[in-house]
Design a protein around this nucleic acid. Structure first.
Lengths: 261, 261
DNA sequence: ACTTGAACCTCTCGCCGCGTGAGGTCATAG
DNA sequence: CTATGACCTCACGCGGCGAGAGGTTCAAGT
């Protein structure tokens, strides 16, 4: 079975220290591999010292290679359990799975890099009147993590980058403008079914929709955003130039207008 | 000091379960944060139950955000120890360090992806006469890891990709040709200072130099390659179309020719 | 006032891949 | 016979919690 190529008859048998030096791993690592069955010493002396064969050395090389590719020792044991000569498909599946996992990790890291870069540019940017602003941004990050699933965050980020920074900035300006106009109407007591108000509400909803996907997914994202707003009205409106209670009143006005529409 | 923004006088104080639900972390996590001092409950009831304030909640958000960016809890504790309002440079340094670390990780993962992809293409390629070939490739990977430093591996990979796959294949063919010619001379007993032999040796060295950098770094890489060859002559020559002892003889012939040149 | 069930407390072990000892046995050279 | 290394088997430690055991306390209903 094992050892079709290099049979060990009469060949040298290594002690654990020799194997360690030859392969560049520590003795402790070999002990560990023996313990968990990734690489068992194929023999012991009468006094209990491990003796390794040339086949063991080759197997060790394979183990180290697969580990260098990022696999767990459990996966490696399974991969090397059935001789790959009999079962090349198993090895293929494992490598493919590993590749998928690596791609996922790479994506995650790229996202983190983008986020950290963004935070750094906020810190370095001219707009640094107030370190509290930065801390609040930090708080927002974990809020987003709490309320949106990773897929939803991906989707939001994707749409923002599709729109481009300029369009996002323009949307921010238009949003501020809508807030001001609607607040004015709310203060003036304009009825919610006034055509001017209805038009403003329509613009508001359109503006928001640009950031969400269509269909069920988009609705879920919007629902998550609403939940976040309801739970953290104060913290969130602290980042806006209007006081929290004014925004709360505005949201109520909006709700009534939508109900009337 | 702390709580300049949101003072807690008379405000609601959360139990650990309420804080957990509000922030989306588990109670166990909050216990852990309390234990290691990342987020201490700012008070306890007489019976020992933890009570959290609004400031604690904000701090928790910051902790979760920094963790989502990949920082360790130790780093986070340090980062939040000094109020960042007093020391914005510290936070900047931390984020910059984190960004560096993330870039390193991203590079590593990209390399792994390239390696796994290469292995998969070897498995899928038409040239799959022999699963042993594949296993030997695995063994080579860990050998390279043992003999070359990460920098040296980077350098080798860089030069190979600069040369391009075609040039590498061409070099392989020329190498085979040189081996055949030199073996013929060695067998024929041509003296090592024969001009034809010296020319072949010159070509051999040039061919090898194309894969190594110039200067001290390149010499170290070549030395590492020689050590690898010396330690693993048999395994390595098993991947070449000539028997190990013929290659060994050839290397000796080469050495003598270089000494004579 | 009593009971119940949920929420809270502390303490401990488990995961992964070993590093780093501690304390004892075996092999070999002088 | 002894000194020195190489080897052996435990066993704890690391990071960031999950999972559970076993006991107390809280809040609400009867």
């Amino acid at each position: 079975m094992a050892g079709v190529i290099g049979n060990d008859t009469g060949a040298h048998r290594w002690s654990i220290g020799e194997l360690a030096r030859a392969s560049g791993v520590t003795v402790r690592t070999l002990h560990h591999y023996d313990e968990i069955g990734v690489l068992r010493a194929s023999a012991r002396t009468t006094s209990g010292h491990r003796r390794y064969t040339a086949d063991d050395l080759r197997r060790l090389y394979r183990v180290r290679a697969l580990r260098a590719l990022g696999m767990s020792l459990d996966e490696i044991r399974e991969a090397l359990a059935s001789s790959p000569a009999e079962d090349p498909a198993a090895m293929r599946g494992l490598l493919a799975a590993q590749l998928r996992q690596l791609t996922v990790q790479a994506d995650r890291i790229q996202q983190l890099i983008a986020q950290v870069t963004g935070l750094l540019s906020q810190l370095d940017g001219a707009s640094m009147p107030d370190p509290d602003q930065f801390l609040t941004t930090l708080e927002m990050i974990s809020m987003l993590d709490t309320y949106f699933t990773p897929e939803q965050r991906d989707e939001l980020a994707r749409r923002r980058s599709e729109l481009g920074a300029d369009a996002v900035e323009e949307a921010r300006v238009r949003f501020a403008d809508l807030v001001e106009q609607l607040l004015a109407h709310a203060d003036a007591g304009t009825p919610v079914d006034d055509p001017r108000v209805r038009d403003l509400v329509r613009q508001w909803d359109e503006l928001g929709n640009a950031f969400h996907a269509e269909g069920v997914g988009g609705e879920q994202t919007k629902a998550a955003a609403r939940r976040m707003w309801q739970d953290h009205r104060d913290e969130l409106s602290a980042r806006l130039p209007w006081p929290a209670e004014r925004m709360a009143g505005l949201m109520a006005y909006l709700e009534r207008a939508r109900a009337a529409g």
